[in-house]
Design a protein around this nucleic acid. Structure first.
Lengths: 266, 266
DNA sequence: ATCAATTTAAAACAAATGTTTGACAGGTCA
DNA sequence: TGACCTGTCAAACATTTGTTTTAAATTGAT
């Protein structure tokens, strides 16, 4: 029991040069953590995939959770450098093009097949079942993206849009992107022959951008007009009353007149 | 080792009258499975929460996985009966109102606080990390809802809309709803003071419906006009070329002219 | 080559996992 | 009463978990 020769061994800091084992451990851990989730991955799986001994994780990182945090930190830089959100865009681009670029880069990240392709699923799992990584994830990746999207949406809605409305519109845009990350396993089961890969990103991004820009255009008009509240039509049908749990219909209804064809372009 | 007296004991079928233990096991299992995910829940957690012995799961259901399937099957009926998607609606309602009702009922299900509130998280986890339940989940819950939404969207887009486009529009609508289920843990971390509950459903549903209806209205027009392909403007900005992984821009670009204000209604 | 630090590897650790066992209590019916 | 079935329980099953220990290899400078 000579502890002197073992003092300071655990959580040993890496001294500059990266041994192969440590690097292999990091990459394998990323893949396996994303595959099975943090709680369900075993250090033995990671070590087997990395071709390392079972004790390697504890030697190099100091434990399973420490390795997990290391993986998250290590992946922050990688995925952020690839596919920056202003990518393909000049500095003074129109907000419409900024939105297109934002959506496209988000989808490219989702459908990426590079060495950090597991990042997308890991984020998704952490969002639904928060572990030790969600806070740092939100701080370093989600928040900057939310702020960037917020600026774009505000530019599209105009200066008079209520912050609350701008926030909801941002949610509407980003949700359409997140959808393809979170429903990746569902879509093939739902539509036989559905197969999404990086090649389909352009088509999907184009749809999301067009859909969102159309909605935002109308929101901008309604927002500008709604400075002075306008009379609203009542709901077309009256509720029948057999609903088991009806919430009070206190919110405002739509001010659309759906049956009339609008905007007779062409 | 007299196996005769034990033959046919496991996976015993419940004979009509439900013992308290069995019922408690089912309800506890639903909550715990949704809390921790299938792989990470232990039968001991379930049994402790149900106040039952560790062997109860194997006696009543025949194992952990069998209990999981039972929970899923048991929950299908409950959540589907509550908040039907056509709720609050007459039989011949306008598609706009059908969409509003669909979105509202979806959000009500997400923010439900009843005894099956765990269903939402369980579905989310199963969608991201598919286990044994996703197939039955898609078959019995996702597909009917997708078909219903598909009919509504097609009614809104008009008969000339391409099926592919209708599908993408359906994704855009449903994704805005799913967002609030899948990002439930993120939003409070992102916006201090953000707190979503059943009371906010009306506000969110109204936004999603208005946002989507605005976009679908323009999609309907564009789709009707696109029967004969029209000349399209090129992208406003040219790519700079420093993109690390550019996909071939084979897909169609937007036919919007973002800088021009369209639809000068009002 | 020598010495010390660094990195690996096999084995073992206690704790926790899903499942099985066998006994026991409470009925039901002959 | 005695056989029989149902349900519950404590205990133990073999496996797997994350981590630790111990020793052997590897490395690099002197």
């Amino acid at each position: 029991m000579f502890e002197t020769q073992l003092s300071g061994r655990m959580t040993r800091k890496h001294n500059g040069t990266a041994p192969q084992t440590r690097q292999a451990l990091l990459e394998a851990a990323g893949a396996v953590f994303a595959e099975r989730g943090y709680r369900c991955t075993t250090v033995r799986q990671i070590c087997r995939q990395a071709g390392a001994n079972v004790a390697a994780v504890n030697y190099h990182s100091g434990g399973k959770e420490a390795l997990y945090r290391e993986v998250i930190r290590h992946a922050h830089g990688r995925a952020a450098a690839k596919f920056p959100p202003d990518f393909d865009l000049g500095p003074g681009a129109a907000p419409e093009d900024q939105l297109r670029a934002f959506v496209r880069s988000f989808l490219l990240r989702i459908f990426d097949t590079g060495p950090t392709a597991w990042m997308s699923k890991l984020i998704a799992m952490e969002m639904i079942d928060p572990g030790v990584a969600l806070d740092s994830l939100v701080r370093e990746r989600v928040r900057p993206m939310a702020e960037r999207l917020g600026r774009i949406v505000r530019a599209l809605l105009g200066p008079d849009a209520a912050p609350e409305r701008a926030r909801l519109c941002g949610f509407s845009v980003i949700s359409q992107c997140i959808f393809y990350a979170h429903c990746r396993a569902v879509l093939p089961r739902l539509y036989a022959g559905w197969k999404t890969g990086p090649a389909d990103v352009e088509r999907l991004a184009e749809h999301i951008a067009r859909f969102s820009l159309a909605a935002l255009r109308e929101e901008a008009q309604a927002g500008a007009g709604a400075q002075t509240p306008r009379p609203r039509r009542a709901r077309a049908r009256v509720p029948r009353g057999n609903a088991p749990a009806r919430a009070p219909l206190a919110a405002a209804h739509s001010q659309n007149t759906p049956t009339l064809p609008q905007k007779p372009t062409l």
